[in-house]
Simulated scan of single mutants.
Amino acid sequence: MDPDSVDSVDRVPHGSSDEPDVLDLSANINPRTPAGTRAVYGAAFEDARSYPNDGYPAYRDAAAGYVGCDPEAVVPTAGGLSAIRLAIGVTVAPGDRALVPYPSFGEYAREIELAGGRPEFVPYEELLERDPAGYAMAIVCTPNNPTGECPPPGDLRAFADRCAAAGTTLLADEAFLGFTDRESLAGREGVVVARSLTKLFGLPGLRAGFAVAEGNALDRLQRARPAWSLGGPAAAVGAHAMRDGGFVAETRRRLARERANLRAGLRDRGFDVTPSEAPFLLCDVGEPPAELLAALRRNGVVLRDATTFRGLDRHVRIAVRDREATDRLLSVLDEVR
């Protein structure tokens, strides 16, 4: 982090509401957790009474099986955002340029600016066509947040190869990739993968994630990683969750079904909805959404104001939950429009 840059960098808005009596569709969290998670968390209380094993062998082994890499390539972090910060921190120096997609997760540009770097914004659908030479880093988000779209796998791999040839680190944010059956970029030369467990496994407060890298990038991540970078209970629960392949498969099937149902309901009401492989839908409501969002909140439903994403001015992002949540949202939309 560059001390001279901190004062000029603002915080980034996010979804999520802590209001107990609303239907919160602003944060993209699985409404279910793997069987046995509560028991594992409770049993891990004793782990919290001492420092965790800084090698995290069980967690790294589970993560390696989850994404398909060597356990030694896994760098445990307190959530996907910590992996992103670590990757940018060991790569981007003051004055360096980085390719950043938009609309996409706002923390990329913030972390680059905190490092003293200069984000160069590129429409996400054009990013893979850019020449990465001369950039310290390029960032891809698959599926992209907030659009939910994934690039063609061949195009993504070809871009990763061009980044490696140019000496440009490719940071692949795969926070939502577990909701799809697409292959991770973990293990490719020159790529740092950032993964989050909190969304797929319904545990946003757990703060568990990891990075995956090879070669010099891995060595730098390991050197810079804080000691005890993941709490003992988070490591225990994370390892348990990542080993539950049945839960992941069931989640993907349910998500595909419920996402299609929600998209159909929104389109029946005249909204333009972006195709998505993620647990959310980007919806063009035809005008700045402030009044609609306020009306929905008055009726107990909270959506994500997507105009806080660069390049969007009349969009909302809607989390895909279950049939009951979809029915309630559509009912309230019918009331307030």
Rank of each mutant, 00 (worst) to 15 (best):
residue 111 E to W: 01
residue 112 I to Y: 07
residue 112 I to L: 10
residue 112 I to H: 02
residue 112 I to F: 08
residue 113 E to K: 06
residue 113 E to T: 09
residue 114 L to C: 05
residue 114 L to P: 03
residue 117 G to H: 10
residue 118 R to N: 14
residue 118 R to L: 15
residue 118 R to Q: 15
residue 118 R to I: 14
residue 119 P to I: 07
residue 119 P to F: 05
residue 119 P to M: 02
residue 119 P to A: 06
residue 120 E to M: 05
residue 120 E to C: 07
residue 120 E to H: 06
residue 122 V to F: 09
residue 123 P to F: 15
residue 123 P to K: 12
residue 123 P to R: 14
residue 124 Y to I: 03
residue 124 Y to A: 10
residue 124 Y to F: 13
residue 125 E to C: 06
residue 126 E to D: 14
residue 128 L to R: 12
residue 128 L to M: 11
residue 130 R to Q: 12
residue 131 D to W: 08
residue 132 P to R: 00
residue 132 P to M: 02
residue 133 A to V: 06
residue 133 A to T: 09
residue 133 A to R: 11
residue 133 A to F: 05
residue 133 A to D: 12
residue 134 G to F: 05
residue 134 G to E: 06
residue 134 G to N: 08
residue 135 Y to C: 02
residue 135 Y to M: 02
residue 135 Y to D: 00
residue 135 Y to L: 02
residue 136 A to E: 02
residue 136 A to R: 01
residue 137 M to S: 00
residue 140 V to I: 14
residue 140 V to A: 10
residue 140 V to H: 02
residue 142 T to C: 03
residue 142 T to E: 15
residue 142 T to S: 13
residue 143 P to E: 07
residue 143 P to L: 06
residue 145 N to L: 13
residue 145 N to R: 05
residue 147 T to H: 05
residue 147 T to Q: 04
residue 147 T to R: 01
residue 148 G to A: 10
residue 148 G to Q: 12
residue 148 G to E: 12
residue 149 E to K: 09
residue 149 E to G: 08
residue 150 C to N: 14
residue 150 C to W: 05
residue 150 C to F: 05
residue 150 C to D: 15
residue 150 C to L: 15
residue 151 P to Y: 14
residue 151 P to L: 07
residue 151 P to N: 12
residue 151 P to E: 14
residue 152 P to Q: 05
residue 153 P to R: 02
residue 153 P to C: 01
residue 154 G to V: 10
residue 154 G to A: 10
residue 154 G to Q: 09
residue 155 D to S: 14
residue 155 D to V: 13
residue 155 D to T: 14
residue 155 D to K: 14
residue 156 L to Q: 08
residue 157 R to E: 14
residue 157 R to P: 07
residue 157 R to W: 12
residue 157 R to Q: 13
residue 158 A to E: 12
residue 159 F to D: 02
residue 159 F to V: 11
residue 159 F to H: 09
residue 160 A to S: 11
residue 160 A to F: 08
residue 163 C to T: 09
residue 163 C to W: 03
residue 163 C to L: 09
residue 163 C to P: 06
residue 165 A to K: 12
residue 165 A to F: 10
residue 165 A to R: 13
residue 165 A to M: 09
residue 166 A to Q: 02
residue 166 A to L: 04
residue 167 G to L: 05
residue 167 G to D: 04
residue 167 G to M: 02
residue 167 G to N: 04
residue 168 T to C: 10
residue 168 T to Q: 09
residue 169 T to Y: 00
residue 169 T to I: 11
residue 169 T to N: 01
residue 169 T to F: 01
residue 170 L to K: 00
residue 170 L to F: 03
residue 170 L to C: 04
residue 170 L to N: 00
residue 171 L to W: 04
residue 171 L to Y: 07
residue 172 A to W: 04
residue 172 A to R: 00
residue 173 D to R: 08
residue 173 D to H: 14
residue 173 D to A: 13
residue 174 E to M: 01
residue 174 E to C: 00
residue 175 A to E: 05
residue 175 A to S: 06
residue 175 A to Y: 06
residue 176 F to W: 12
residue 176 F to C: 09
residue 176 F to H: 13
residue 177 L to E: 11
residue 177 L to N: 05
residue 177 L to Y: 01
residue 178 G to H: 03
residue 178 G to I: 03
